[in-house]
Amino acid sequence: MKALTSRLVQAVVVAVLIGTATFVMMRSLPGDAAWRIAAGRYGYDNVDAAAAEAVRSELGLDGPALPALLQWLGDLLTLDFGTSLVSGQPVMHEIAHQLGASAALAGIALLLSVLIGPPLGILAGLRPGGVLDRCLLVVSTGLKAVPQFLLALILIVLLAVQLRLLPAAGHGEARHFILPSLTLALGLAAVNARIARDAMARIADMPFWRFAEWKGLSRREVLMRHGLRNVSVPLLTYLGLQFVTLVEGVVVIEAIFGWPGIGHALVHAIFSRDVPMVQGTALVLGLGFVLVNTCIDLIVRRIDPRGETEARA
């Protein structure tokens, strides 16, 4: 309960900080915001000084910054995210529309990474220093060292351009999911495999692992009954933190594969100085991070009751 309250406070702090920071950063970007917004509305070719002036006076861009920020924070209290400066649609509506596409991509990427990383990590951790362990170290370090945009380009060149197995970009069909989610998943799996490997190696070295074997349980039973549960605690905690990597990845990957999600929208909103959109998007992502970690806290607490009792004592 106490943890939930502190998470709630955290969510409020995150909201205020993100809102303020994005606002300040958007205001301090070089270039004329009115021109950019007008370009976003009418297209670059149709913008002239008159259109920019019209936008400027309509949105009050010359006005002082502080009232604008306070206005936004005040609206936030009533759950009003404002309207997009470009499309004129409510921000909430736009985000809800794009979030689905992003969540589907992120969800599939996460699922894929959990299917690739932890099983390999656990197998490697059962025999530290073995062939699999050493190979995994090399592969995961290599994958982690490659930036995601590069990995995406490599996969596109290899699978889409050379072998012509998959579409290089697009959205709408199941096969469009494969390349972007695989790119994201490989980056995530590279790290969560290491986490699983280290946790497994540590647990297999603990006296209770030995004791479970001495009780007469088979290797498989020891792993299933005593290994997985213990590995899952550090792994889940880490997956919560990986949400940041995932969001970061989604922004880059959506831009590369033309995926109509929240990351794609964020990049466009920044280009066209659509401040309410940027604020809203960053806010949803930030609060998403708090929400994901709260859920993970609750799950971990259910698996591992130790922390709870200590807090009570």
């Binding site: 030995r210 001495w214 549960r229 605690v233 591992d304």
Partner: peptide, 16 residues
């Protein structure tokens, strides 16, 4: 044959 471990506390699975 079974073994009674040295440190019983550490020999029980902490999550079970």
């Amino acid at each position: 044959i079974s073994v009674l471990p040295q440190e019983p506390w550490l020999s029980l699975d902490p999550l079970m």
